[in-house]
């Protein structure tokens, strides 16, 4: 088949909701977009371990400690599933990690904000995981098979993450004045960055249109953001916490909440590397990777030695 025919066949498959699998022909642009998006998603999971990992040692009860440990561990697992999905596109994890360390690949900017109090473990679970879930549920229907399958697994596991976050906040707002204040402060700090997680407005999003045509994404940034706000505001009301947006108001006509303008200058500042923790997060990740190099090498050396010994023993 000619390239044109292949492209047409490919788009027909997509339009008919037939999943694309690793060995199928695909346009180079599709492959590149997937690698970019899946690896960005994987990096987000892995860098996302750091702000929460910051509180494992200080979790204020043993029940909270095991829940948080299990949650952060899940994120490692999700990173792993996603790296595996990306690897089916012919790039290996080490290369993806190198791109991250060289600043060529991005991760979700939200993880460049610091986790300052225990309440942040609540807000991250509730808002950050909540926002991520909106995106991830959509991606269970994405057109690339391995990505969709990874997302199904991730969504299944994620279901407890948001609940554990919300439960932390629920406990705080039912506690002392100090605890309530801690919860409110945390919502104040995380609300806007959580809204920014969905990315720029649709008209400013360079990839949205192509991504939708290829059915990698199935909803636009603004649709997902609205969906998130509509779901989350009543949850904030239940907690008795005030969402830090004076313009936030239910709009009967639209059937949605109206909300105030997002500070896109702040968004781009953090994306471009000037957020509160960008350098710290990257330094920590690079350090772990480099300090692990001798371990990875030694394990491989041992495996090779052992295989050689077995061969000699057989011969």
């Amino acid at each position: 088949m000619s390239d044109n025919q292949l492209t047409k066949h490919f788009q027909d498959q997509i339009d008919q909701e037939v999943k694309i699998e690793p060995k199928d022909w695909m346009p180079e642009g599709y492959r590149q977009m997937l690698i970019r998006q899946i690896s960005q998603h994987a990096h987000s999971e892995v860098i996302g371990m750091l702000p929460e990992g910051n509180w494992i040692s200080r979790a204020p009860s043993l029940r909270r400690k095991v829940a948080l440990l299990a949650k952060v561990q899940d994120e490692a697992g999700h990173g792993l599933y996603l790296y595996s999905a990306a690897e089916t596109l012919g790039i290996d994890r080490d290369e993806l990690i190198a791109q991250l360390h060289q600043g060529k690949a991005k991760y979700s900017s939200i993880f460049n904000y610091p986790s300052l109090t225990w309440a942040d473990m609540g807000a991250i679970g509730w808002l950050v995981d909540g926002a991520a879930i909106m995106n991830q549920v959509m991606l269970t229907r994405t057109s690339y098979g391995p990505y969709a399958r990874a997302m199904v697994r991730i969504c299944k596991e994620e279901s407890f993450h948001q609940r554990q976050g919300y439960e932390i906040l629920l406990t705080l707002v039912r506690g002392s004045e100090d605890q309530k204040a801690m919860a409110q402060d945390s919502l104040n700090r995380w609300w806007w960055p959580a809204l920014m997680m969905f990315g720029p407005n649709d008209e400013d999003s360079v990839h949205t249109q192509q991504s939708m045509a290829w059915k990698i994404k199935r909803k636009t940034n603004d649709e997902l953001r609205q969906q998130f706000i509509d779901a989350t505001v009543p949850q904030a009301d239940y907690l008795g916490l005030k969402v830090p947006d004076p313009d936030l108001k239910w709009n009967d006509e639209r059937g949605h909440y109206d909300f105030g303008p997002i500070d896109w200058d702040e968004f781009w500042q953090v994306v471009k590397g000037y957020g509160p923790c960008n350098r710290q997060r990257m330094r920590d990740h690079i350090a772990a990777h480099e300090e692990g190099a001798w371990v990875r090498e030694a394990a491989l050396a041992y495996a090779e030695k052992r295989a050689a010994r077995l061969e000699t023993a057989v011969a």
Binding site: I56, A76, L80, G292, R296
Partner: peptide, 13 residues
């Protein structure tokens, strides 16, 4: 648990 997020490779983390 201090290792969580800092392991030598994701699988071992």
């Amino acid at each position: 648990s201090e290792w969580c997020g800092h392991g030598p490779v994701l699988e071992q983390d």
